[in-house]
């Protein structure tokens, strides 16, 4: 059966239910959120209808600047660390037999689907005084008394790398599977060490994929919400945490909505950049 253009109304019927669901429960909530971002805050209630830009003006305060700066810095650090760790790993994985690959992929997907709460709890246990790394180091006489390694920046960063690494691997996986293995073999035949061959052949061949992956992981890390709360101190809170805090605990929906709109714009701009990189690559072929 060939694909045919939709001509009559009955041809469009199957589209009706999904389209209605997506418009009513995604587009409209989104629209309401944008509208609320211009409303006025009402003490004790949700909001009063109005048109003010006061919620956006609060972006100019140093407090917001600090949170935004920290969120972007943290997401960038997570993205860079994840790509550096995942790139060699995924290229090794692509060289494994299919059976081994499937076992790894099951584990990676299982960890990717784990709740942020569970990841946060697991790392808080591993960094705790009585059940964690501190305990192990002290048993090996490397640390005098067991110490807790959290809360702190290192703990937040580690937890977020753990959360984003499976995602990074899955983003890189298809490109590395498609990469012609003879490229690396040629480099090795010509006398390059495995490391040198990797850096001078694999990395340049995948530069568009690497750029796109960095951005996607950056956006993914921007969404991390529980780990900064479980593993960090209040100064490690990110924009995602601040949005929830304003919406739920300060009941300032308009300000929360304005920050969410801002976060959408950052994310869309970055995703657009990925599409642009992808489009240019298509055009180059």
């Amino acid at each position: 059966m060939r694909r045919e253009p939709a001509r009559t109304f009955s041809d469009l019927l199957p589209l009706l239910f999904p389209a209605a669901m997506l418009v009513v429960f995604f587009v409209i909530p989104f629209g309401i959120m944008i509208a609320v971002s211009f409303f006025r805050r009402q003490q004790g209630g949700f909001y009063t209808v109005d048109f003010v830009i006061a919620n956006y003006e609060r972006f100019l305060t140093p407090f917001f600047g600090d949170v935004l700066g920290f969120s972007l810095f943290l997401a960038a650090a997570v993205a860079v660390c994840c790509v550096l760790l995942a790139l060699p790993f995924t290229s090794f994985l692509a060289g494994c037999s299919r059976r081994v690959q499937v076992v790894w992929l099951v584990g990676i997907l299982a960890i990717l689907s784990l709740s942020e709460v569970i990841i946060g709890f697991a790392w808080s246990t591993l960094f705790s005084r009585t059940a964690g790394i501190g305990n192990l180091l002290s048993a090996l006489d490397l640390m005098e008394t067991p110490k807790a390694l959290l809360p702190g920046f290192g703990a937040v960063l580690t937890g977020m790398i753990y959360q984003a690494l499976p995602f990074t691997i899955l983003l890189l996986y298809p490109s590395l599977m498609r990469l012609d293995p003879s490229l690396l073999e040629a480099a090795r035949t010509l006398g390059a060490s495995p490391m040198r061959g990797f850096v001078s052949v694999v990395v340049p061949a995948l530069r568009h994929t690497i750029a796109a992956t960095l951005i996607m992981v950056f956006v993914f890390a921007l969404g991390s919400y529980l780990l900064p709360q479980i593993l960090g101190r209040p100064q490690h809170w990110t924009l995602s945490v601040l949005i929830t805090d304003q919406a739920i605990y300060q009941s300032n929906m308009p300000f929360a909505a304005a920050m969410a709109v801002f976060l959408v714009l950052i994310s869309l701009a970055l995703v657009g950049l990925v599409l642009l990189v992808g489009g240019r690559r298509e055009a180059a072929r």
Binding site: F26, P29, I32, M33, V219, L222, G223, S240, L263, S267
Partner: peptide
């Protein structure tokens, strides 16, 4: 695809207001 690509807090807040 959009809800899955954006930071989840955005979709969550959209549902809350809705």
């Amino acid at each position: 695809v959009a809800p899955f690509m954006l930071p989840p807090v955005i979709t969550a807040l959209g549902f809350l207001t809705f």
